[in-house]
Each structure stands twice: as C-alpha cells, then as structure tokens.
Design a protein around this nucleic acid. Structure first.
Length: 345
DNA sequence: AATGCGGGGTA
DNA sequence: TACCCAGCATT
C-alpha cells in the first residue's frame, strides 16, 4: 500500500518528467495510433511479410541517425548483394565500406560485419531472439535490440527511439522534445503504452507517427488525430530553451577522414563500377578515435597500385599526404571531394 | 553524464 | 547557419 501510494504520488506531480497517464488516455492513444498506422504506413521493404530477421537488423543499423529515405536504396542493394549474415561475413571489408556509400557513421558498417561474423560462426547463422542477447552484438544497443525483438521476432518489447520519445513527451508531458538520451525511468514509463496484443503495430505505428505527423520540425498538429488530448498543444506548443549542441564538421578530422575515404573508395572502383579489391585499406579511416593517426598515414603511404593518379601520388610518400592534410585544413575543407581530387601539387 | 562519430536535406 | 535524422560506444 505505502509503496504503491508513494510511487503514484511521485509520478503524479505536475512537474514530473513522466507524469501519470489515465487509462482512458492510454487506450485512446493506442487505438488511434494503430488505426492511423494501418492506413498511413510507408511501404518500407523491410516490413514485407517475407523479410528475414537479418534483413530487419540491417535496416535498423542503417537507420541509426540516418533518415529512412536515404536508407532504403542502400538497403535494397545490400540485401541483394549479401542476403544472409554468412554472405556479409565473408565479404571484403573494403567493399562493405564502399557499398555503405555515404550513409554516414561508417563504423556502423564495420560493426555490422562483425555482428554478421559472430552470428555466422557462433550462433549457427541465427539472429538472437532476445534483446539481452542482441545487445551483446557489436553496434546493437537498447533501441536496436528492442526493435529487432519486436519487428523481426514479434515479441513484446518497448521500442523507444527519438520518434516515440517525442510523441509521448509531447502528448503527456507537454514538452516539445525529449531529453538528450532516454533513461530507465523513461523506458518503464513508455512501456505502459505497449499493448499486450498488437504490440508490434503499436511500436511500428508510434515510430511512424513521429516520423510523419508529430515531427521535430513542422509537426502536422492541425490534422493530428490526437490534438484534442495533446498536452503540448494545450500548453500552446512551447519550445524548450535548451538547444542541442551541434557538432562541428568543417575543418575537423571527421571531414578529413571522409575526404580521404572518398579517394580510397574511388580507387576501389573501376570504370564499370565494379569493385576491384584494391590494396588501399579503406578501413584505416573508419577508426573509433577522433584523431588522424600518423601511423595510419604511414601505412597508407606504403600502398600503391590504385586507379587514380591522385591516389598514386598520395601513396608515393607520407610527406605528401601530410601536405595534403595541411592544405585541406587551411582551405577550410569547403569543397571536400573537389579539393581532395584536384588539389594542386 | 559527456563526448565523438557522417553526411545530407531543410528551414 | 543550425537543426535533425528508427543511436552506439567510450570515458
């Protein structure tokens, strides 16, 4: 009695980040979202009935911090080229990075191949069924583990991505955006909305709702089917004072790595667009550290035999690469590819 | 809890 | 320019 009462009084405080929600509202939101999803869902290929768990996992990794519209064509190419974890496990890492193309965060491609090798060599080719096991794989955190558990295996979990968090925070906390990262309390709070049945439709639907209706910018509140109960709407749609800190790009090591990777990828592709499996180690430039390691440059300089004259020059000596970097930085790295490929000697 | 990690589309 | 995007790993 005392335990339950204190918990309720805590969560009922008006300034609580995760306020108590009436059962009628919970049912109303479930029903509305699931019904909306039936008619409004985008026809994403990884939602097809015959999709494999591996295909779902690939889609989730690619979609981390990357808009779905950019993921879809890459995903189609990947699944045609590497339909199973065993296929990706045996692929040349340089080609894996090349086919990752410009999705960003290329370390995800490396982690995905590592995961494919674990699944192939240690798990008999089967994607793990539980979130706990999934989280042991490289590149898979709480969100991706829950998403695969729900979308690929049909198990009831709480899927909490940036879309779900924004929708629920707006509806019931009246704030415009969630905190920078979700905590245990928020996950438990969000779990009360996941129904016993149709949990997959809820998880997918509320994500989609956040992506298409309750968006971060220009939300479609006028046509929103939940605007009558939305706490954010009732409060006048206030915007939070704290702005997220945006990361630097121009002139940073990250931009430089991207520039060099562009050159290396080009060196891996012949005139027909086929992958040559060249000797230049693309993956040297997808390390987890922020710095351009001088040892990496020395190793790169030891490789020759590339298709581009520019890269052949780059490979001739490490001092030249050092000069390239200096020039790129002094140029502010404005026109990335152009500068790398056409930098005057 | 903070930080680093890519790249492109959009207001 | 700044913000945002189906987050994760490290410190």
């Amino acid at each position: 009695m005392t335990h339950r009462a204190s918990a309720e009084s805590r969560s009922s405080r008006p300034d609580s980040p995760f306020p108590a929600v009436a059962n009628t509202d919970i049912h109303r939101v479930r029903e509305t979202i699931i019904t909306w999803f039936e008619s409004a869902a985008r026809p994403l290929p990884w939602r097809d009935a015959d999709t494999t768990a591996w295909a779902v996992l690939v889609s989730e990794i690619m979609s981390q911090q990357t808009p779905v519209s950019r993921v879809e064509p890459r995903w189609r190419e990947w699944m045609q080229k590497w339909p199973t974890p065993a296929d990706l496990a045996q692929a040349p890492t340089a080609e894996v990075l090349h086919r990752w193309d410009r999705l960003g965060y290329p370390r995800r491609a490396l982690r995905l191949q590592e995961a494919a090798r674990v699944i192939t060599e240690e798990l008999d080719g089967h994607v793990p069924q539980t979130a706990k096991e999934l989280e042991r794989l490289p590149g898979i955190g709480s969100y991706t583990a829950a998403a695969v558990t729900s979308f690929a295996h049909g198990e009831r979990t709480t899927v909490l991505d940036t879309n779900v968090r924004r929708v629920l925070i707006r509806l019931f906390a009246g704030r415009d955006r969630p905190s920078p990262s979700p905590g245990r309390a928020e996950t438990e709070w969000a779990g009360q909305f996941v129904p016993e049945t149709e949990h997959k439709q809820w998880n997918a639907g509320v994500m989609e709702f956040g992506a298409l209706v309750c968006t971060a910018r220009n939300p479609q509140c006028e046509t929103c089917p939940l605007n009558d109960i939305c706490a954010w709407q009732k409060a006048g749609r206030p915007t939070s004072a704290v702005k997220p800190k945006t990361q630097k790009w121009a002139g940073t090591d990250r931009q430089l790595r991207g520039a060099i990777m562009d050159v290396l990828k080009s060196a891996h592709e012949n005139a027909d667009g086929a992958h040559t499996g060249g000797s230049v180690p693309i993956d040297l430039f997808t390390t987890t550290t922020a710095k351009i390691d001088p040892d990496m440059l020395d190793e790169l300089s030891g490789h020759t035999a590339t298709k581009l004259d520019r890269v052949r020059d780059l490979s001739a000596d490490s001092q030249r690469i050092t000069r390239l970097i200096d020039d790129l930085v002094s140029d502010g790295l404005a026109a990335r590819t152009k500068n790398v490929l056409q930098l005057p000697s």
